[in-house]
């Protein structure tokens, strides 16, 4: 019976069906299932499966994004019950995400945010055209483990370096890992600005983030 419910939960994520995911989350609460179990044995299974399908070319971005949205909806529904039980979902790490100052491209960055949060990271997405000072402020405020910096223009890429330099200056560089992304970002650039890694796509970014916080 419970296995069947877990199966349905996973399927709701695969279908990108937020309504179904919410209904199943409520059903789990009503039947007294531990929310953490609903997540780990039900919903997350779906997220991982979509990620794998995407990685091998069988799923596409809309499926990925909708799966992420459904996951978010399920977790939000389970949240009050987790609080009631005094438990919380294991968070792999806190990530501050931003598209750097002068750059308004957000599609890639938003996608990374969706997938990171679906995969168990606490994401603070600051949006686009974000000045370095604002990024640093947020990093300090939430005590972030990771910073993700997006830049789609060769002219704004330099801001990725600016953020890293600033973290360095404040002595935060050892504690806070920096991932960079965006079309013009290359391995050479990552080395040059001494970032901790980059990824070609959102699924790769999840793997990278997990490696950087030492989960895998």
């Amino acid at each position: 019976m419970t296995d069947e419910l877990f199966q349905k939960m996973s399927q709701s994520i695969l279908d990108g069906d937020s309504d179904a995911a919410i209904a199943l989350a409520k059903q789990a609460i009503d039947s007294g299932i531990d929310p953490l179990e609903a997540i780990s044995k039900g919903f997350v299974v779906g997220v991982n499966q979509v990620g794998e399908s995407f990685a091998c070319g069988q799923a596409f971005l809309p499926e990925l994004v909708m799966a992420g949205e459904a996951m978010k909806a399920a977790v939000a529904t389970l949240e009050p019950e987790m609080q009631k039980r005094g438990t919380s979902r294991q968070v792999y790490g806190k990530v501050v995400l931003a598209t750097v100052e002068g750059d308004i491209h957000e599609i890639g960055k938003t996608l990374v945010g969706t997938m990171l949060s679906a995969s168990g990271f606490q994401v603070y997405d600051l949006g686009v055209d974000v000045p370095t000072a604002k990024i640093i402020e947020k990093v300090k405020e939430v005590d972030a483990d990771l910073v993700g910096l997006s830049a789609l223009l060769t002219t704004t890429m330099v801001k990725q370096k600016e953020v890293i330099d600033e973290l360095d200056k404040l002595g935060l560089r050892k504690k806070v890992k920096v991932m960079v992304g965006g079309a013009p970002v290359t391995k050479d650039w990552v080395q040059k600005i001494e970032a901790d890694g980059y990824s070609e796509d959102a699924i790769g970014a999840v793997g990278l983030a997990k490696r950087l916080v030492g989960v895998v």
């Binding site: 070319g57 596409f60 971005l61 599609i107 890639g108 996608l111 796509d201 959102a202």
Partner: peptide, 8 residues
Amino acid sequence: IFDMRHGT
């Protein structure tokens, strides 16, 4: 169009 595989 937006490429749904590569986001390009």
